[in-house]
Design a protein around this nucleic acid. Structure first.
Length: 369
DNA sequence: GTTCCACAGGAAAGCTAGGATG
DNA sequence: CATCCTAGCTTTCCTGTGGAAC
């Protein structure tokens, strides 16, 4: 507001600790106050997860300021195309639009680690140095990152100028989460329908998972939805337990859905086996079934070595649990247990069209087991 | 005590798509 | 546009191993 060069700020914190919400709130207030002051403050919010190349970041910036600066200068174009121009041209355009009037620009780069990871720190280098060249305006950058280590990937010069001020958002503890939940619950639930201990339990669950407030709110919401769907008058701790289960299952279904095809096929083999045999599932059997499935669906067959790795990956993702057991002369194997309901697993696997084979017919044709 | 099964899982090389570079 | 590079898969080849059966 006083027209001095503002510090750049870097904000760290795990997901669901309120980084984005805080920044959005503060910048909104800042814009409100600046309406009454001679110096204009403009905030540009860019989520680097969506806008993930240096070109697109610059083009977004350029377009924002071109729109605002329209009419100030004749030689400025109306907009920058989202593809096609040389990058330095876009940069120049952004620069001129910025400098065409006296203003302070606050550029918020959310998930800045994604940008650095994909593109390196070139854009950041230019952006942090731009103040030296601007005559009328000033730029301040707010970087938001989940990754505490991402600074190590930056050029030292960028690092020091970007982190003139650092802010760490620590995870919420259970008490704080409880506080947040209570406030929200007062708005969204009819008074008295939430039973004793429900909110504490939600808070405890979320606190155990890195203090993610979003997770805590989800838990409470899903518990409420479950109770409502069953026509229950109040939300009991039992619903929280089931909500937790449901969220875990949904997460798993999502993971399965995005699995590569070969992994799906391996998982499918395990599901088929789990439905046809009461015996423990053995990695050797999985491989046999897998080979048959490949033959029937016309996919190329991976080696046993590789399938073993895929099984370990499924284990790491928590979709299955595998433990090594030795059966004397019957050798050593992995005994595999499915951690998700077979029907749900099937549905998640078949979600994609590439596995559009008629599964029932297919598994009936299986000669093994 | 010895054997030997049926795999686990390490090392290294080959392959390939997609991105960077000139 | 051609070419070069790189990361992520995958294969090949290999050594290791717990414990029931001999």
């Amino acid at each position: 507001m006083r027209g001095e060069t503002p510090s750049n700020i870097l904000i760290y914190g795990k997901t669901g600790t309120g980084k984005t919400a805080s920044v959005k709130y503060v910048t909104r207030e800042l814009e409100k106050v600046s309406d009454r002051s001679p110096l204009k403050v403009r905030v540009v919010y860019i989520n680097c997860e969506e806008v993930n190349t240096k070109y697109r970041v610059l083009a977004t910036l350029a377009n924002t300021f071109l729109e605002k600066a329209r009419g100030n200068s004749d030689e400025l174009p109306n907009s920058v195309p989202m593809t096609g121009w040389p990058t330095d041209e876009v940069y120049k355009c952004f620069f001129r639009a910025m400098d065409s009037e006296r203003q302070l620009a606050v550029i918020v780069l959310d998930e800045i680690d994604k940008l650095v990871f994909r593109n390196g720190d070139e854009v950041l280098y230019h952006l942090t140095r731009i103040n030296a060249d601007l005559k009328n305006s000033k730029v301040s950058i707010i970087g938001i990152s989940n990754d505490l280590n991402f600074m190590n990937y930056l050029d030292p010069r960028v690092r020091s100028s970007l982190s003139e001020e650092e802010l760490v958002f620590p995870p919420y503890n259970a008490v704080q989460l409880k506080d947040i939940l209570e406030k929200r619950a007062r708005i969204s639930f009819v008074e008295g329908v939430i039973q004793e201990g429900v909110i504490s339990l939600c808070a405890a669950h979320a606190a155990r998972e890195h203090g993610d407030a979003r997770r805590a709110l989800d838990l409470l919401r899903v518990a409420g939805e479950l109770a409502e769907r069953e026509g229950c008058e109040s939300v009991s701790v039992e619903y929280v337990r089931r909500a937790h289960e449901k969220i875990e299952q949904d997460k798993m279904v999502e993971v399965i859905r995005t699995l590569p095809t070969q992994s799906k096929l391996v998982l499918y083999s395990i599901v088929v086996l789990s439905e046809r045999t009461p015996r423990a599932i053995i990695s050797g059997d999985v491989y046999s079934v897998y080979r048959e499935l490949c033959a029937q669906s016309g996919m190329d067959v991976l080696t046993q070595r590789r399938v073993g790795d895929l099984i370990s990956e499924l284990d790491m993702l928590g979709i299955i649990s595998a433990k090594i057991v030795s059966k004397g002369r019957q050798g050593r194997t992995k005994e595999i247990k499915l951690n998700i309901h077979p029907i749900q697993a099937m549905a998640a696997i078949h979600d994609e069209q590439l596995m559009s084979l008629d599964t029932l017919k297919l598994s009936r044709q299986l000669t093994l087991v």
